[in-house]
Amino acid sequence: MRPVSKGWTAVTQVTASKVLSQMRDAGYVDLHDNIVRFLRALALEVGSAVESANPPPGLPMTIRGVTWYSLPVPNDPVFFNYSIYPEEHQIRICDLIWVASL
């Protein structure tokens, strides 16, 4: 059983979770860990913005009534889209794109 969080959290949807797993499986453990830390910090930043009526970080775009924010991860080859669910104190990451060079 998970403890109930009292703060804002980041939840990755299935496709974003798969990309994170692929990073780790491909040996990019540090990148994986950096992205996870970034998403956790972003959830707190978004929560603070929402609670103070400021705009959250990222470029907003509305698709079928849901506003998504597009954001790159600074200094890493990753960008993603997230949506905000204030009643649940949660952001949800649906698309996580890792630009891997071979």
Rank of each mutant, 00 (worst) to 15 (best):
A16V: 00
G7Q: 13
P74N: 02
R24W: 10
N75G: 03
I35K: 00
L102F: 14
E88V: 06
L71K: 04
S48V: 09
G47V: 08
G58E: 03
R24Q: 09
A10G: 09
E51L: 07
R92Q: 10
Y82Q: 05
L44P: 02
W8C: 06
S21M: 11
L102M: 15
T12M: 11
I97S: 05
A10V: 07
L71D: 00
L44A: 00
P3R: 15
Q22L: 11
V50D: 03
L39F: 08
R2F: 11
V4G: 06
I63E: 06
E88Q: 07
G7F: 13
Q13F: 12
R2M: 15
R64N: 12
L96R: 10
A41E: 06
P74R: 04
K6D: 12
P3D: 08
G7R: 03
N81G: 11
D25C: 12
I84C: 02
S5H: 13
S83T: 05
L20K: 03
T15W: 14
D76W: 09
N75E: 10
L44Y: 05
G65K: 02
T12R: 10
T62Q: 11
P72Q: 01
Q13V: 05
E45F: 07
A100R: 09
H89T: 05
N54M: 15
A41H: 09
R40P: 00
L42P: 00
V19I: 10
G65H: 01
L102T: 09
N34R: 10
L96Q: 04
Q13L: 14
S52V: 07
Q22F: 07
A26C: 09
A26T: 13
W68D: 00
V66Q: 11
L31V: 04
P3T: 15
R37D: 06
F79L: 07
M1D: 11
R64F: 08
M23N: 05
W98S: 00
V73R: 03
P3M: 15
S70I: 07
L96S: 04
P56W: 03
V78N: 02
Y82T: 01
R24I: 04
V78H: 00
L39W: 11
S70M: 14
T67N: 00
I63R: 14
A100S: 14
E45Q: 13
A10C: 05
F80Y: 03
H89R: 15
N34P: 07
G27H: 13
R92S: 09
I91G: 04
P3N: 12
N54A: 10
D25S: 14
Y82F: 09
P3A: 12
L20M: 09
G47H: 04
L71C: 08
N81K: 08
F79W: 12
R37C: 07
K6Y: 15
M23W: 10
S48R: 08
G27P: 06
V99F: 13
V46R: 01
Y69I: 03
G58V: 14
W8A: 01
R24K: 10
D25W: 10
M61E: 15
P60C: 03
L39E: 03
N34D: 14
A26V: 12
S52L: 09
V4I: 06
V19N: 02
H32L: 03
A16G: 01
C94A: 12
